[in-house]
């Protein structure tokens, strides 16, 4: 859920989505020259990356991501 995937057949490596995300969820894989979802758990589902992507490569589900919460982590 939330940001689900970036379609690598479509992604042209322009990097616009990296700046679109105010939660810093997306970054560039410099080797592959593609955008990668680095911190999916912090996606706030605002959808800006999806609407900013010029080639329609990003898929964001309107639902929040469900994941387990730990009280004390290490």
């Amino acid at each position: 859920m939330a940001i689900e995937r970036i379609d690598y057949d479509l992604c042209n490596g322009c990097g616009i989505c990296v700046n679109s995300c105010w939660m810093d969820v997306i970054s560039m894989d410099k080797k592959k020259e593609k955008a990668v979802i680095k911190y999916p758990e912090d996606c706030a589902v605002c959808g800006i990356c999806e609407s900013d992507c010029p080639v329609g490569a990003i898929h964001v589900s309107p639902r929040m991501r469900a994941y387990a919460l730990t009280c004390w982590g290490q």
């Binding site: 700046n19 679109s20 995300c21 105010w22 605002c46 800006i48």
Partner: peptide, 13 residues
């Protein structure tokens, strides 16, 4: 700016 200027905060919405 903590995010990216022009892609941040409630101004976006």
């Amino acid at each position: 700016e903590k995010g990216y200027t022009s892609r941040t905060g409630s101004s976006l919405f």
